[in-house]
């Protein structure tokens, strides 16, 4: 199932399909290892509901929902 990263719930996991963004945000995502094929586990939401915390390439990464909106995911069933 295809979903955007910001729509995924904690403990859901999946694989990055595509980054739909430009400039700084896109580059930052790539640099941090959010590239097509990378697997992601959504760990949790911040107490106020945003940003989110994910595990990628063996480390913890946090990003805002507005930024997670740019990451298209193939969610594992």
């Amino acid at each position: 199932m295809t979903k955007m990263l910001n729509e995924m719930k904690p403990s859901e996991s999946g694989t990055v399909k595509k980054i739909i963004s430009e400039g700084k945000i896109k580059r930052r995502l790539y640099d941090m290892g959010v590239t097509p094929g990378a697997s992601i586990i959504v760990k949790k939401l911040a107490p106020l509901g945003d940003p989110i915390e994910i595990t990628i390439r063996g480390y913890e990464l946090t990003l805002r929902k507005s930024e997670a909106e740019c990451v298209e995911m193939e969610v594992n069933e």
Partner: peptide, 8 residues
Amino acid sequence: PFIMELPA
């Protein structure tokens, strides 16, 4: 951007 590592 707020794309930040949460270090151990």
